[in-house]
């Protein structure tokens, strides 16, 4: 399924180099070392961020989130991709297309 111009559910996403992140009370703060800008993620965003410490498909992340939180799959797909788009735009994640696509 194509969810956005840059990210599909088969895309592989992973935390980019050049950032550091830290947790506090289930939330996560991510610092873009180059720009100096930092971003805060709520507990669900923090969970998505923790999943991206290893390369994963967007579909895997959506499955994990729908399995752990009470959320409609469609809404989950929309929200996950919106977050990934933002993180990608800020240079905090790398996005690749799955070779098995």
């Amino acid at each position: 399924m194509v969810l956005s111009p840059t990210i599909s559910d088969r895309s592989i996403v992973v935390a980019a180099k050049g950032q550091v992140s830290s947790d506090l009370a289930g939330e996560t703060a991510i610092l873009n070392i180059k720009s100096g800008v930092y971003y805060s993620l709520d507990p669900i965003g923090a969970r998505i961020w923790s999943l991206m410490q290893e390369p994963r498909t967007v579909a895997d992340i959506q499955d994990a989130i729908t399995g752990e939180y009470e959320v409609e799959p469609e809404r989950c797909a929309r929200d996950v991709v919106a977050l990934l788009e933002e993180l990608h735009a800020q240079g905090l994640i790398e996005v690749k297309e799955s070779s098995s696509a």
Binding site: L24, L31, Y38, S40
Partner: peptide, 13 residues
Amino acid sequence: TAPSTAAGMALVR
């Protein structure tokens, strides 16, 4: 915690 988070991140960089 907001001031220490902002200051901490600036200091890490």
